[in-house]
């Protein structure tokens, strides 16, 4: 059993560049961390050794793994997706997909491993057949940058979310939008700044697909400095209705950059802005039941397959692993 209230730092992995995103691999042996030097670090959780994956020409925010093939897919802000053998001693990209015009902001692999989905600044969501990496289908329906994408656990539906808070569920067979969710509180057009601030910064389903979580920033009062409040919206997938707005229990300014459902039913989020924080929620309570103050600005979140460890990449060049025990 995980015990959120016993959360403690168990490992710090220090690099030379601020972290952007992180994921534990499906085997649970490695932590992959992308950073502002365009590289991806592979940290061996056993011996603490690090290997750099170099090949991207821009920052990587999207990282996903094939469930069985020991392949990592990483999407970058140059519009490319690179496929990597995760175990390689001297990793080289096995495939480079010219995926989007503009940034690739998120990638996801279908539960059966046959499809890769990507979301980009060209307003498109794309499906790629695996392992070939050939374009299988395009979904056009967003009118702005698409920030996130994930598969429903049933493998029949894909959900994408954009800069303005529009969230669409696409039927993979027909390519049509089957339902939409309103997450527009995670975006605001700032009339002084004359631009939109926000977007869905993290998105995930719970294990049975009944709940969808979308994380970001709301209540922005100053777009120049990013003054707003982190929030995670919980949607009932079947009805499409919002059932909860998860917020910190104490004042915190910044963005919720990562969200995960724990198999035991609670929800975990991290935020960064003016400092960093880790929050634990129950789906039926909007305020966090436990908060861990973090040593720096958190930028993403990954839950280990053992359900007891969390990884967070930070601005201070470190990725830290926390144990909920």
């Amino acid at each position: 059993m995980a015990n959120p209230k016993s959360t403690r730092l168990v490992q710090t992995y220090k690099h030379t560049s601020p972290g952007i995103a992180c994921r534990f691999d499906p085997t649970g042996n490695y932590l992959f961390v992308s950073s502002q030097d365009n590289a991806i670090q592979r940290w061996n959780l056993g011996d603490g050794k690090m290997v750099l994956f170099q090949g991207h020409k821009s920052w990587v925010r999207g990282i996903a793994f094939h469930p069985a093939a020991k392949t990592m897919y990483s999407g970058d802000y140059a519009g490319k997706i690179l496929a990597w053998p995760i175990d390689a001693a001297k990793p080289q990209p096995a495939k480079i997909i010219d995926a989007h015009q503009g940034w690739v902001r998120a990638v996801a692999v279908s539960p059966d491993g046959s499809l890769l989905a990507s979301a980009g600044n060209d307003h498109l969501v794309k499906l790629w057949s695996l392992p070939e990496g050939k374009l299988s289908r395009e979904f056009a329906g967003h009118d702005c940058h698409v920030y996130n994408v994930c598969f429903h656990p049933d493998g029949k539906t894909l959900v994408s979310a954009d800069h303005k808070g529009a969230v669409h569920a696409w039927d993979l067979a027909s390519g049509k939008i089957v339902k939409s969710f309103d997450a527009s509180v995670l975006a605001k057009y700032d009339t002084t700044f004359r631009a939109t601030i926000g977007g869905i910064r993290s998105m995930t389903f719970n294990a049975d697909g009944s709940l969808l979580a979308c994380a970001g920033i709301t209540g922005v009062t100053n777009a120049f400095a990013g003054i707003g409040n982190p929030i995670v919206l919980l949607f009932d997938y079947q009805s499409g209705k919002k059932i909860q707005s998860l917020v910190p229990s104490a004042s915190f300014r910044g963005t919720a950059w990562g969200v995960e459902f724990h198999p035991e039913g609670f929800i975990i989020g991290v935020g960064g802005g003016q400092g960093g924080a880790l929050w634990y929620w129950k789906a039926n309570q909007n305020k966090a039941f436990h908060t861990v103050k973090l040593p720096n600005v958190a930028r993403d979140l990954s839950l280990h397959r053992d359900g007891k460890r969390l990884a967070i990449p930070f601005y201070d060049n470190c990725a830290r692993v926390y144990a909920m025990s």
């Binding site: 600044n121 700044f193 004359r194 631009a195 977007g199 120049f224 400095a225 990013g226």
Partner: peptide, 17 residues
């Protein structure tokens, strides 16, 4: 043309502006 005072999300805002 306004606004470029991007203390936050410099890169997203520069794409827009």
């Amino acid at each position: 043309h306004s606004n470029y005072d991007t203390h936050h999300e410099n890169f997203n805002f520069h794409i827009e502006q």
